[in-house]
Structure formats: C-alpha cells, structure tokens
C-alpha cells in the first residue's frame, strides 16, 4: 500500500505512514496485516544515579571531619570549623538532600533550605557575638523563603496565569527591598530608605508590565510568542 499523502510505499507492518502519520487505508484493499519491524512494548532502561549522592555525601563528610579535626588539634576547641561544618550542612541540605528522594516535593525542600539557612545565620550570630539575627537575618531569610515557597507552589499547582505569577513575584521582591532596608535601619541604626526605593521602583514597574501582559490578552500572546516559544 502507498501513503496517499507522501506517496511512499509502506512496509507490510505499517498501520500508518511513518512519515506523516496518515492511517494506511484503502476501501478496495485488504488492511495492512504484516508484522512490525520490531517487537511491541518498549521498556525504558532504568539508570541508577545513586553514586552521585553517595559521592557528594562522602565529600561533605570528609571535608567536615577534616576541618573539625584540624581545628581541634590546633586550638583544642571548635572555632572556625563550626562555621565550616554549618556551611557544609547547609550546602548539603541545598544540593544533595533532594538527590536522596526519587519524587521529592520542591515545597518541602525549599522550606528545609530556608530552615537550614536560618540555622546557619543563627550559628554565625551566636559564634560571632552579634545582635542582628532576630531583628535582621531571621526576618529577611524568612521573607525570601516564604516568597520562594509561595511562587514555587503557585507555579506547580496553578498552571495558568504565568504573567500574574511573575507580576506577583516582582511586587513581592519590590516590597522585600524596602523591608530589607527597614530591618537594616532598625538593627544597625542607619537612615531609612536610602537605596531601596530604586530597585523597588524598577521591580514595581516590571510587575506592572507583567500585570498588563496578563490583563491585555493580545499583548500577552505577543509576549508568549516572542519570548516563550
């Protein structure tokens, strides 16, 4: 039988044309009944990537152990190696922990990442004897963690409205700039709103741009076509 669309002769096992997909059918001819070139039922090969996480776990473990040992041998206490250990733990939670889960939930991972960063900052604050954690580092890290988790959750579970999501993210980031300066001002007793107005204005304008793209459909479609395809 020949494909009415492409003109090529079809092999006996072809139920439709491999080139254009047109079903091989002719009312005056018997149906294509030959057997396929290959057996049916494709079973993809499962590739084990376990060695990657094991390698990184080993690497993080060795690095942390070595630093602790050297620090203790030299100064008989845990000083700078504590910071290294906490940094490595944070890095491990951020980079390696997701590898241990086949179908991990990004919202859970990002929440854990925020928690790990908060703990690192708390340790730094205590270790260095600073008084900036509660009034500065904690609220800022928590704020960006919440923004990140919210945007990720919306991106995963609400498939539509990408422009609104981007507008919301831009407005949230715009607001966060002012808050960063605000927390800095009350913690370190500086002047308020010196630099944050500029990025806030820029991010606010970007937010308005995305919002317009969401509201004005032709504009949104044009953007989709130009930027996302």
């Amino acid at each position: 039988m020949y494909c009415a669309n492409c003109g090529v002769e079809l092999g006996e096992g072809e139920k439709s044309c491999p080139l254009c997909g047109l079903v091989a059918y002719h009312p005056d001819m018997p149906k294509q009944s030959g057997e396929g070139l290959y057996p049916d039922g494709f079973a993809p090969i499962k590739v084990k990537r376990g060695y990657v996480k094991l390698f990184f776990s080993f690497f993080f473990g060795i690095a942390a152990g070595t630093c602790l040992l050297i620090d203790y041998l030299i100064s008989h206490r845990i000083g700078w190696s504590g910071i290294v250990l906490m940094s490595l733990l944070t890095g491990y939670v951020l980079l390696v922990l997701p590898l241990w889960f086949k179908k991990g939930n990004w919202i859970v991972f990002l929440s854990l990442d925020t928690l790990a960063v908060e703990l690192l900052l708390l340790y730094l604050n205590l270790h260095l004897g600073g008084h900036w954690f509660l009034s500065y580092a904690f609220p800022i890290a928590a704020m960006y963690g919440i923004i990140l988790v919210t945007v990720t959750a919306l991106a995963i579970y609400v498939r539509r409205g990408v422009f609104y999501l981007m507008a919301g993210s831009s407005f949230a980031l715009a607001g966060s700039m002012m808050l960063v300066e605000f927390f800095g001002a009350i913690t370190f007793e500086r002047r308020m709103f010196v630099w944050s107005l500029y990025p806030t204005a820029a991010l606010g304008a970007l937010g308005i741009f995305w919002l317009l793209a969401g509201i004005i459909k032709p504009f949104g479609n044009m953007l989709r076509k130009r930027m996302f395809v």
Partner: peptide
C-alpha cells in the same frame, strides 16, 4: 521509496 518503521507511524 518503501518505508518501514519501529513505531508503525503511530
């Protein structure tokens, strides 16, 4: 040209 495939054009 005579064409054959491993996916039957599907």
């Amino acid at each position: 040209v005579k064409v054959e495939s491993n996916f039957g054009g599907g």
